[in-house]
């Protein structure tokens, strides 16, 4: 018993370590700037929603969330559409150059976004996509697609080949088999892949900021606006930060039972 008590004590400590910084942000988002700068208080003395009201009534603020959501959703859809057939090919067939292609894909996941910054900027400007949602989505695909292929390949390899063969004998065509039988079988893998595309695209700032200026500006870039000549508007900054955490928490709630397996890229 003593052993398990020690365990839960250690676990609580770690959870506390994770939650306290977040609590501090939450705490600050409900305070006025005078209270924030006036002195330290563990909870808001003068509870206020003003910071949130500022964000929800100003289109230049809340459009940032809309922009971010738009390109994240685009990125998820594109990633899944192209990664599903590719992962199936990698998990089922041997073909010329398969291993090298796989490694090449992965090497893109590992390349620092900073390396691609400059050419992306030039590339998307030259094809007229600069400052559009699709440009950011495509740029993020470079990183999310390889990871998606890797995860899905892990999940698909866990499905026995016999299922494919039985379906063909039963007269299913490939597309019908793929959509009606195969995809439902790896639905948790697809959920996890979507989660990872979401995660990557949602947290990324460097590319999203460089490829946009006004129309598609992500919330993360707008947050730098709170730094003005008269100092930083801490309350609004904290409120904006809290609002960026919420979608992530919602998403993780839906895939909570598959997260761990997904992080192991389906390879447990």
């Amino acid at each position: 018993m003593n052993h398990s008590k020690r365990k839960s004590f250690g676990m609580s400590l770690f959870i506390l370590f994770i939650l306290i910084p977040i609590y501090w942000l939450l705490n600050m988002s409900f305070k006025h700037n005078e209270e924030i700068l006036g002195g330290l208080s563990l909870w808001p003395q003068d509870f206020t929603f003003d910071n949130y009201i500022t964000i929800f009534t100003d289109p230049s603020w809340y459009m940032g969330y809309v922009n971010s959501m738009t390109y994240v959703a685009m990125n998820m859809v594109i990633t899944l559409l192209v990664a599903l057939p590719a992962a199936y090919a990698f998990s089922r067939y041997k073909f010329v150059g398969d291993k090298h292609l796989f490694f090449w894909l992965l090497s893109n996941r590992m390349a620092p976004p900073a390396v691609f910054l400059l050419p992306f900027f030039q590339l998307y400007s030259s094809v007229g996509l600069f400052d559009t949602h699709i440009a950011v989505a495509l740029a993020h695909c470079l990183f999310s697609v390889p990871l998606a292929v890797w995860i899905l390949e892990g999940f698909m390899s866990g499905v026995p080949r016999e299922i494919d063969e039985t379906a063909y004998i039963d007269g299913y065509s490939f597309p019908r088999f793929f959509i009606r039988i195969f995809i439902p079988m790896i639905s948790s893998g697809i959920g996890v892949t979507a989660f990872f595309s979401f995660m990557f695209s949602w947290v990324e700032l460097l590319l999203a900021r460089t490829l946009t200026s006004v129309e598609a500006k992500p919330i993360a870039a707008i947050m730098t606006r709170t730094v003005t000549a008269s100092g930083i508007d801490w309350g609004v900054l904290a409120a904006a930060g809290v609002l960026t955490i919420i979608p992530g928490v919602l998403v993780v709630y839906f895939v909570r039972n598959h997260v761990a397996k997904g992080f192991a890229l389906g390879r447990v």
Partner: peptide, 10 residues
């Protein structure tokens, strides 16, 4: 999983 889903700048 929460910290993993917070935007990097946040």
């Amino acid at each position: 999983a929460i910290p993993l889903l917070i935007p990097l700048n946040v």
